[in-house]
Design a protein around this nucleic acid. Structure first.
Ligand SMILES: [Zn+2]
Ligand SMILES: [Zn+2]
Ligand SMILES: [Zn+2]
Ligand SMILES: [Zn+2]
Lengths: 150, 150
DNA sequence: CGTTAGGATGAGAAGCATTATCAACAAGCT
DNA sequence: AGCTTGTTGATAATGCTTCTCATCCTAACG
């Protein structure tokens, strides 16, 4: 019975990440934001805030959080990964400002069903999808066009 | 009358790209494919096919084609740009195999309407969107699981 | 058909984001 | 407190993409 194994962890218990001050700092920084940011942007924000976390570690922690589904990851127009803490753990999508990064979380059951049906129709398996809407948010539009109105 | 200007090109006529053998080679290579490919993949394919186009030029031409809307561009899971010749010029999306790159073009008016409405509801302007479905195509599924069925 | 101006190309350097290394460190456990 | 092992930081390395610039070639013109 259970040959050569530690008492717990029957098969392959994934070890939980340790609670380090760097990990806490990243978590706190994410909590103060409701915008999507790149790893480098978050690193700079933390540095400006006094928290000292190396860039390499910021990359590592964000990737780890993403792997565990604790943050949302998607790609900006340049193909760079951008991160944001999920407010809901369920599957959802985003409407985000390509100028300031502000994001609105969106749920669209109809789109989910459409995607699943479309994939099934063509015999595709192991399906996932990306559905993101990019635009300029009201604040950014207002800022760029103060008063003129043709 | 038209001081200091060439006869044509009243305001800012965008100069058409010249027809070079490199541009033709890229066009031909794209025509032989119905899969999405990265710039480097296309460069290798052309090299294998005898066509000699430098990597830098391949980058330039694909970007140019994309800017003119002559090829579809999207991002794979790694954030790399992947290209494919549009069979339809109208706006559409794709269902593509993340293993072999094969793509099916999809039109979904309902999704278009949903995206526009969602953006408008939140006051976003200059809106565009990405809607892509990734999966494993029937051929690739069959290849990876020949006969076993637990 | 020869000339010519300027866009296009190739080869390599440069830029940049991301990842890999590895010694030093510290979180968690006994 | 002491030990074990996951984490961190500084830096090198990797690899994709862009830039530079001398040369080449297309397109237009005489
Ligand atoms: Zn905004
Ligand atoms: Zn979805
Ligand atoms: Zn396939
Ligand atoms: Zn669409």
């Amino acid at each position: 019975m259970c040959p050569g194994g530690t008492p717990r962890a029957a098969a392959a218990a994934p070890p939980e990440p340790r609670v380090t001050k760097q990990r806490v700092a990243v978590g706190d920084a994410l909590d103060t934001l409701n915008d999507f940011v790149t790893t480098q942007e978050l690193h700079r924000l933390m540095a400006d805030d006094g928290a000292s976390v190396s860039l390499a570690t910021t990359y590592r922690i964000l990737q780890s959080l993403a792997d565990d589904g604790l943050v949302d990851v998607l790609r900006n127009g340049d193909g760079e990964a951008i991160y944001r803490r999920c407010s809901v753990s369920a599957h959802h999508h985003h409407l985000l400002c390509r100028n300031c990064g502000k994001a609105v979380e969106i749920e669209a059951p109809a789109v989910e069903a459409w995607a699943a049906k479309t994939a099934a129709t063509h015999g595709f398996t192991s399906v996932n999808h990306t559905v993101e809407i990019f635009g300029i948010c009201p604040e950014c539009s207002a800022a760029s066009q103060p008063a003129t109105q043709p």
